[in-house]
Amino acid sequence: MSGFALGAAVLLLLTLVAGMVRVVRGPTAADRMLAAQLFGTTGVAVLLLLVLAGGGSVLLDVALVFALLAAVVGVAFARRGIAAPQPGRGGGHERE
């Protein structure tokens, strides 16, 4: 079980690296932010797998905080998209 959980965690980290390419290349602000939001979700999954692999139940608390605080960034980004429409560009889809 522990070996499978660690293997899955490594696989998830690899998908996270693939997500980083999207953060760096964009092209829109929403592309970058959604990839970062996905990191939060993936991070929660990695932490839960580490608990399965014997990392200790304290990691569940870390996962809880990951999930809650990622939502704060997401909402702040969504409000910013409406707050700062660039001239001649769409609301949340402005090119960066």
């Binding site: 996270l16 760096v24 964009g26 990839a35 970062a36 990191f39 932490l47």
Partner: peptide, 23 residues
């Protein structure tokens, strides 16, 4: 990153991975 927004998003991602590193 010359684009500040991109830098901020990368910083957020960096923080998440750093938390995993502390774990």
């Amino acid at each position: 990153a010359r684009d500040l927004f991109k830098g901020v998003v990368l910083f957020i991602a960096f923080g998440l991975l750093l938390a995993l590193a502390w774990v």
